[in-house]
Amino acid sequence: MTTREDELAVLARGLDQAAGIVDTVDESDLARSTPCADWTVSALVDHLVVAPERFAQMVRGEEVDWSGPAPSRGDHRGEELRRGAADLMEAWQGVGSNDTPMGPDWQSAEVAIHTYDLVAALGRPTDGLDQEVADRGLAFMRANLKPEMREPAFGAEHTAPEDADAYERIAAFAGRAVAAG
């Protein structure tokens, strides 16, 4: 059995990993397409950067509007993501284990899916990523994402390649077409 601290440790690693990848994105990458329909790398990175801030608001019980596009964060995206991650970790420390409807694993799912999207858009492999982040996120999604709840955020589940790692499996579950190899 895992504890809230276990979940938070995995989430923190996932956020730190995402920030490290965001740090490597340069101007020439921003217009690239991503596995997220209608999103460029720029829009995806902006979403990744703002997600921890919005998650922190949710954990604190504040109202959050996810409907609009994330605001552009400029040239210091990795730093902004790390600031939001620190705020999110602090917000989690301020709530009891029964004070939120879902634990941190649902946030690990979001981070893992979009980390996959980013590395895929950049043409990088997923095998060097922290697999536990995606494993925990996928377990959460399999237990909680019912078919009628998929739209509009997720497409129909795709079949992952037989040799898929955890990031490829969570991406396929979230509706991304994942190629073998």
Rank of each mutant, 00 (worst) to 15 (best):
T2A: 13
R4W: 08
R4H: 07
R4G: 04
E7A: 15
L11K: 00
L11W: 04
G14K: 01
G14Y: 01
L15M: 13
Q17H: 03
G20N: 03
I21M: 04
V22W: 01
D23Q: 00
V25I: 03
S28M: 11
L30N: 00
A31W: 07
R32G: 05
T34Y: 08
T34V: 08
P35V: 15
P35W: 10
C36F: 04
C36L: 03
W39V: 08
V41S: 05
D46S: 10
D46N: 13
H47L: 07
V50P: 02
A51Q: 13
P52R: 01
E53K: 06
R54D: 06
F55A: 12
Q57W: 05
Q57T: 07
M58E: 10
G68W: 12
P71I: 08
S72F: 09
G74A: 14
D75W: 08
D75V: 08
H76P: 07
H76K: 11
G78Y: 00
E79D: 14
E80K: 10
L81Q: 02
R83A: 10
G84D: 03
L88E: 01
E90C: 04
A91W: 01
W92T: 00
D99M: 06
D99F: 02
D99L: 08
M102W: 10
M102A: 12
G103Q: 05
W106R: 11
Q107W: 11
Q107D: 15
S108C: 06
V111I: 15
V111H: 11
H114P: 04
H114A: 04
H114I: 09
T115N: 08
Y116M: 00
Y116Q: 07
D117I: 04
V119Y: 07
L122Q: 05
R124E: 15
T126E: 13
L129S: 14
Q131P: 06
Q131I: 10
V133Q: 05
D135P: 04
D135W: 08
R136C: 09
G137K: 04
A139G: 05
F140K: 02
F140G: 01
F140S: 01
L145A: 06
L145H: 01
E148V: 15
E151M: 15
P152E: 14
A153S: 13
E157A: 15
E157L: 11
H158V: 09
E162H: 10
E162T: 13
D165N: 15
D165H: 02
Y167P: 10
Y167E: 06
E168N: 05
I170L: 12
I170G: 00
A171I: 05
F173I: 09
A174W: 02
R176S: 03
A177F: 08
A177D: 13
A177M: 09
V178I: 11
V178A: 04
